[in-house]
Write a protein that binds this DNA or RNA. Structure first.
Lengths: 160, 160
DNA sequence: TATTGTTATACTCTATAACTATA
DNA sequence: TATAGTTATAGAGTATAACAATA
């Protein structure tokens, strides 16, 4: 039934584009990660949110939303989910009764650690064809990319 | 209002993960690409579909869906969109009255060429902080990754 | 029986806009 | 007036399941 293995793949010319390759690899890593962390009650976005809260205690929802490039309104459900799972808590802010200080619970920190370990394991498995040096290089290139892209958001287009 | 520039970013520990960086860069390139090709009546998925049809005349919808890792049912609307835009046509298949032979129109091929040029331009702009050598290396690493990941879909998890 | 394309439906993610309570 | 969080709503994107026509 499948005979595209040896001949040229159907998307040969698309594979010339870095963006296309980037997306394919992203989808692949992401889907593996999703299926491994769902037993922790996490999804990629809630994992990222949890991790940022762990590292930045007493963060507000609005600043968390900014960090995740998500609207405040979308943040509500994500934070709800983490709170209902007992992974974080919304604490009162002494000086400002409008906002919450988000803080991870002990369980939240433990789950975060497990999720990070899973992420690293998934990457070790999926990126096993790369040497350690190549992985380090990738990280370095991405870091440089993100810095330059923040300054140059493709003219002045919307940037999410 | 913003003071995270000099100090450590909120997502510092997530940035240790290649998958996280990959996704951030992907979203960035993608959003720039989306805003630039919408004047051509294309979205990323319809662009990919059009490009594959151009390169593989008389492809069926089912094989196109496989190439894009999309369900046949989702393919219908995408092909509809391209057909209504006059970029492709559904032709009859002599031997099999169940399926269509998808073929790009002249306009479709011209639009495809423009879209490819736009994609390359977006990448040139957004990846300007990388040297040509580094870009070539990225492409090479991705190529190797895709080959190895197809063989090793993270155990036997679903793979889309 | 299996396959192609289709439809109907539902689910996830996220955006927009309007609201409230604070500041 | 501006901000934090919330709600209601809608849109994109894609999945699942069932169906008709054809193989």
């Amino acid at each position: 039934m499948k005979q595209e293995a040896q001949s040229k793949p159907l998307d040969a010319s698309l594979r010339q584009l870095i963006g296309y390759n980037l997306r394919r690899v992203d989808l692949c890593i992401r889907s593996a990660f999703v299926s491994r962390i769902e037993s922790l009650g996490l999804k990629p976005t809630s994992f990222s949110a949890l991790s940022i809260i762990c590292d930045n205690p007493d963060l507000s929802q609005s600043r968390l939303a900014e960090a995740l490039s998500v609207k405040r309104s979308a943040m509500v459900l994500i934070v709800d989910e983490l709170e209902h799972g007992g992974l974080i808590a919304r604490h009162a802010v002494p000086g400002d009764r409008r906002s919450y200080a988000l803080r991870a619970t002990l369980k939240g920190m433990q789950v975060r650690d497990k999720a990070i370990a899973i992420a690293e394991q998934v990457e070790n498995e999926l990126l096993q064809s790369l040497t350690g040096q190549e992985k380090a290089l990738l990280t370095q290139l991405f870091t440089r990319l993100e810095q330059s892209m923040i300054k140059t958001p493709a003219k002045k287009e919307k940037f999410k």
